[in-house]
Design a protein around this nucleic acid. Sequence first.
DNA 1: CAGCTTAGGTATACGCTGTATATATGTCAA
DNA 2: TTGACATATATACAGCGTATACCTAAGCTG
Lengths: 222, 222
Amino acid sequence: MSSVRPPLDRDTVLTAAIALADEVGLGGLSMRRLGQALGVTPMALYKHVANREELIDVMVERIVAGFDVPIQDDDWRRELRARILAARAATARHAWVRTAIETRRMAGDAVLSHMDALMGAMFRGGLSADLVHHAMHALSTRMWGFTRDVMPTPSLPADVSKRAAALAAYAEAYPAIVRMASTGSHAGADCDEEAEFVFALDILLEGFERLHHAGWRSESNA
Amino acid sequence: MSSVRPPLDRDTVLTAAIALADEVGLGGLSMRRLGQALGVTPMALYKHVANREELIDVMVERIVAGFDVPIQDDDWRRELRARILAARAATARHAWVRTAIETRRMAGDAVLSHMDALMGAMFRGGLSADLVHHAMHALSTRMWGFTRDVMPTPSLPADVSKRAAALAAYAEAYPAIVRMASTGSHAGADCDEEAEFVFALDILLEGFERLHHAGWRSESNA
DNA sequence: CAGCTTAGGTATACGCTGTATATATGTCAA
DNA sequence: TTGACATATATACAGCGTATACCTAAGCTG
């Protein structure tokens, strides 16, 4: 029975790990569970992967490598935008990638390539090394296509009779929050994440461009 | 000997937990280790705290509650800036807070108060609910005074003779990265985190103000 | 063909985690 | 004095990553 299964290889492990993480999240991805999914002892995985941390490293690399569609644009700002939105599209399909990227301690090839592509576009646009450097920091995780959500706020009680009282107490303690939540289409649950992401991204890109044209230099380089 | 120790209370546990997390990080903060630090069985902690997750909740609350210095300013932008920099000062003293905040699933009182204060300043400045909403998302974790660092890039080999070759290979694969790293004062290690943070924050704040004056509205509210 | 090497998989075990459950102990009220 | 209650303990379970030792089958070499 076990003789039927073809031998494992690094790629099979990697693919199964990604599929499992898609299902149960990064926390649920344990070596034991992954072994089980592959019909194999947990320790078998260590023949193909150094340890769990390295496994996650290569999972990230695999996803980030998918960013690299050939985007060329004379307008550096458009290219940056397109690359970041491509990154967003790729990471959006794997919720665990957010946490995975945030916990990596060293950049791999694909990660470096993505960063290099972003910086390359800015250099071609004529931005100074100083500005490019600051821009990369300003983008932060946004360069991978995601941002940490604002922390979820408690929702009102389901019981309609208690709803009004809760809202009143709430409004007294946190007037601005309630004002925002009760104005227009800004209820917490139905945020248009995509729009929020692009909103912030465009502010940053426009800021970079504006500083570029103004001949900005950092204080340490003044 | 154990009769000498005064009885534990929630506050003592909380204080010890924060001190321990300062030392060993959030990952190193285990119930067993915290119990040991307090001279107590791990299970004793559960009389004062529901579980580890709730403990971290209140740790975050304690830190965030420290933000609330009375900052009033007629200029909404200055007030926002001051509040966020106050948050940064408070979180900077506790490295674990970054991870802790990012993993919280529900906002507590102090967290809500901080958010309310930020939004209140913007409302007093005349910004629309629509814009306030988008601005909060754009700030993201930056409203807590931190950002995820750009992923560390590999450093060159210490051996001087191999250094040049490594740099050359590196430059071919990632020209823009090397160009930036070798221009001016942008070596990876000696980034001025404070300056980077303020740089991005000011771009965002200026963007908000600009959109406000232009009478911006989101597409969904057009 | 015999024998050895080695890659791939297994079995077992260690030390760690959070925490459920049941028990003991010490303090105060009746 | 007797109970009740709050607090701390002891034990135990299921899970984790992974070090170590072993086995087994394939492939190359003499």
